[in-house]
């Protein structure tokens, strides 16, 4: 084995991931080659330095915190209920404002819609309806 090949295999040799034949070849080369032996020592020194970093201190309450998190997550399924209630209130305000305005508009034009049905009024006042939706949206956003 030459130095180039040995140098390439040193990291894997250090990680004990070479097959036994290659491992023996590297060992033999290291025994004979001073330069590669020095490189090997450098690698050993590096990994030694890396292992100097201590593992973070364990938090004894960590498992309890995760278990509490699991409970909250489970309870979280029912959080949809208040959200639905808010949506319902929002929709009620929006629609009531819309129909209120529509009834004011049709009352103001009493001569026209006497014979007209509610649907006809809706179709006739298409422009007004859009205006009403627009106004209500503005009111709700302002609110």
């Amino acid at each position: 084995m030459n130095c180039k090949k040995a140098s390439r295999l040193l990291s894997t040799y250090q990680d004990r991931e070479l097959n036994s034949a290659l491992e023996q070849e590297v060992e033999l080369h290291l025994r004979d080659c001073r330069a590669c032996r020095t490189e090997w020592r450098g690698l050993q020194e590096l990994v030694g330095s890396l292992k100097l970093l201590p593992p973070p201190a364990a938090d004894p309450h960590f498992p309890a915190k995760v278990m509490a998190g699991l409970q909250v997550k489970r309870a979280g399924k029912f959080r949809l209920l208040p959200a639905a209630a808010y949506a319902l209130v929002f929709l009620t305000i929006f629609l009531s404002g819309f129909f209120l305005q529509l009834s004011f508009d049709s009352a103001a034009r009493t001569e026209k819609p006497q014979a007209a049905t509610f649907t006809a009024v809706l179709l006739e006042n298409q422009g007004l309806r859009l205006q009403a939706v627009h106004d209500n949206t503005l009111i709700i956003f302002a609110w």
């Binding site: 032996r37 020592r41 450098g42 330095s49």
Partner: peptide, 15 residues
């Protein structure tokens, strides 16, 4: 980390 320089010197000296 600075080990490289040191080990390169060793390698050169050894060679």
């Amino acid at each position: 980390i600075g080990l490289q320089e040191r080990s390169r010197e060793f390698v050169l000296n050894a060679r």
